[in-house]
């Protein structure tokens, strides 16, 4: 049996906006049935990449195909195969949830009776059945996001593009949306997910690519990316004073470990050998530094991302959420 063509395949994709090189020679492959994460900070080129792949923008150079269909010359030729959930909920504020879904279904040529059945089913699955008759304008941010995802999948696309699906919404809605994405993937949909939430990529995606300044700097499975940091021992201490003095003290006493400040009160201890908590805490308390909390931390993709890209993940996340 022949292998299914890649859901998304790009070769040397370039997009420039005036002086700004938004996408710089992008090579990407999302395999059929895969949930692939494109992880990068704000302005890295994630949304531009999605716009290029979905026909909302035209590449200056390079080639790309969707599910084996060459879209380089005709970027809108795979519209019948794709579903898109943009980074902003862009449904029609004057229409109800039900009408929005029915309208989106009609754009994909779904017959009237089938539209109503699909809309009703999706509203129920997304926990929006009670709000079906309410105008979209009156929905909460989380509800808007869910309905936008429902609108993106009502025509059962084989390739789904999800642009920052959980940005700016409450924790409960974000969790529900992640569950829905995982369910879609299990049902066989190929998904390209862009996110700046490292833990989201780690939890959901099979493979992840780090994108910085329009270039892919690394692509691999989450397990392979985590491999180098898996054996690292991490400990986080919360102290009552500025961590500067505590770091100096600990660095002198425990030379085999590396100590860094996470924020105004937290210190991160990192070592290749197991770190005993007791001696660290005692060393600080003997010098009058109170330790409020000490906990072991599992190495995450964040370490790999920071080490690979040289970017501070936390600062970039904060910047995006301010938007």
């Amino acid at each position: 049996m022949l292998d299914a063509p890649a859901a998304v395949l790009t070769r040397g994709l370039v997009k420039r906006f005036g002086e700004v090189l938004a996408v710089d020679g992008l090579d990407l492959e999302v395999r059929a049935g895969e949930l692939f994460g494109l992880l990068g900070p704000n302005g890295a080129g994630k949304t531009t990449t999605i716009n290029l792949l979905t026909g909302l923008a035209r590449p200056d150079r390079g080639e790309f195909s969707i599910a084996g269909l060459d879209c380089t010359r005709r970027p809108r030729s795979a519209q019948h195969l794709i579903g898109v959930v943009p980074d902003e909920s862009n449904l029609y504020p004057e229409l109800t949830g039900f009408d929005n879904l029915s309208f989106c279904a009609s754009l994909h040529g779904i017959p009237r009776r089938e539209r109503a059945a699909r809309a009703t089913k999706l509203l129920s699955e997304f926990g929006l059945a009670e709000a079906a008759g309410r105008k979209f304008a009156g929905y909460s941010k989380g509800m808007k996001r869910k309905l936008t995802i429902a609108a993106g999948i009502i025509h059962h696309p084989s390739v789904l593009f999800l642009d920052e699906p959980t940005t700016g919404i409450d924790v409960q809605s974000a969790r529900h949306i992640r569950q829905l994405i995982a369910d879609l993937h299990r049902a066989g949909t190929s998904i390209l997910l862009t996110t700046h939430y490292i833990e989201e990529a780690e939890r959901l995606c099979g493979r992840v690519a780090f994108i910085v300044s329009g270039r892919i700097v690394r692509t691999d499975t989450v397990a392979a990316l985590l491999e180098p940091v898996r054996e690292r021992q991490l400990l986080e201490l919360t102290v009552s004073t500025n961590p500067g003095a505590a770091i100096e003290l600990l660095s002198r006493a425990f030379g085999e470990a590396r100590f860094t400040a996470v924020d105004d009160s937290r210190i991160r201890a990192e070592s290749s050998a197991p770190l005993p908590v007791g001696p660290l805490v005692r060393a600080l308390e003997e010098q009058g530094i109170e330790v409020i909390e000490a906990r072991r931390v599992r190495p995450t993709l964040e370490e790999v991302f920071v080490a690979t890209t040289g970017l501070e993940a936390t600062a970039l996340r904060t910047e995006k959420e301010k938007k």
């Binding site: 979905t54 026909g55 909302l56 809108r76 519209q79 019948h80 794709i82 898109v84 943009p86 902003e88 862009n90 449904l91 029609y92 504020p93 989106c104 754009l107 994909h108 040529g109 609108a151």
Partner: peptide
């Protein structure tokens, strides 16, 4: 302005 026009551009319908 509300970007809902993108919905139309993403539909498999000739421009």
């Amino acid at each position: 302005k509300s970007r809902s026009f993108e919905r139309l551009l993403l539909a498999p319908v000739p421009l």
